[in-house]
Design a protein around this nucleic acid. Sequence first.
DNA 1: CGTGTGTTTGAACCACTTCAACCCAAGTGG
DNA 2: CCACTTGGGTTGAAGTGGTTCAAACACACG
Lengths: 228, 228
Amino acid sequence: MQTADAPLNSHAAPSIALLRGPAPTRKAHEASALGSVRRLVKDEEVFVEGDRAAFYYKVQSGAVRTFKLLSDGRRQIDAFHLPGDIFGMEPGEEHRFSAEAVGDATIVSYRRSNLGALDQDDGDVPTQMMSAVLLSLVRAQNHMLLLGRKNAVEKIATFLLDLSGRTANNDQIDLPMSRTDIADHLGLTIETVSRSLTQLERQGVIELPAHRRFIVLRNRPALERLDM
Amino acid sequence: MQTADAPLNSHAAPSIALLRGPAPTRKAHEASALGSVRRLVKDEEVFVEGDRAAFYYKVQSGAVRTFKLLSDGRRQIDAFHLPGDIFGMEPGEEHRFSAEAVGDATIVSYRRSNLGALDQDDGDVPTQMMSAVLLSLVRAQNHMLLLGRKNAVEKIATFLLDLSGRTANNDQIDLPMSRTDIADHLGLTIETVSRSLTQLERQGVIELPAHRRFIVLRNRPALERLDM
DNA sequence: CGTGTGTTTGAACCACTTCAACCCAAGTGG
DNA sequence: CCACTTGGGTTGAAGTGGTTCAAACACACG
């Protein structure tokens, strides 16, 4: 059930959710003065739970998953981080979870000590950091509602809407992650994810082209009804 | 299934998780210069999802629950806030969830604008706020693992250990909240909470005195084994 | 004491999981 | 080219942990 695949190297830094609202303007792919860029292959780890958290990161391209494991291997992916998102912020000295590239990806790492970096120009860094962390918290809170109180189809609906909102490709979603990743994010099994998707397809709410990493939203209002 | 109890008044302020690690030293019950104290009766609301978030709060005595509702009334309590904990921090202009007193309680409210307040003396405010928010995030992340991947007994075990760690009354836990609250926090029904507790009691792991708001931990290692 | 709120317990049910095939597209190499 | 493998993904059938529905407790309170 786990995706403990191909660990290659190992940096260090904590984790948060995402940053989009507060520090949007600047495009994600500029190397940002003080950060060093790092290229990751599919499933490569960025850091592991327990590592010293010397850096935090910003996704430049691709996607990163942050997750926790139970001793017997059960996995919970707390968030997927897309281009522009910041992750790896920690309150203490070490990482509270692990981070891996979902597919090939590039990230920028910032030394935790010099909290400078990110978007130099606009705005004081502390405010920016605070915004990023608060946004992560909001996402986490929404996700707790999903995990604790929604059924399988509702979970999928919420997930699709969230993803479509973050990738912006009007009603076309190009999933960066596998069904297994989705399952471990939504607190389901891979089979239930698959069944829920086909159910939504049978109802004409979505479309699942042959290319299984693609989903088309056919009836957004129906999804939104499932979301509330 | 819901616990839509007795809303009384309505302030305004957002919500976060808790603060304990970073700003511990000072005792919770000092009124803290700039904050105004507020006395709450059981189930009284502090603010409702959608309210303008003009304040944030610190619990002085009692307990506060923050939660979200689905349109059909399903409820997810994202956190219980105990004395010393800060809640109601928001990234935007309005509250992302609601807050109510669990039992009678007193809280201190701080204007969001003058981020001064809290523990004047030790430490810059931004750092303190950041710590509080990051701590909330850590708690949320742990809770996502619980909600998404743990079974009923494991959820209860984790909950009891967490609570005992936060109230510090060595192995004696005085629950501030009802079974319904616990259920809505752990993503279970009240019946499953009850059954899991009696199961743990039958196994000699805990003790449930007649006073149903009391629990004694009899075998902490056993609980910790369920927790990992 | 009766009434009420919160909790426990029982029994039937069901949404999701588990186990097991099977499918399908993309390599690999003979 | 054509086996053969490999890594997702889907589908079916059976099992089950937790829910739902219902009833009995139990203590607190006027």
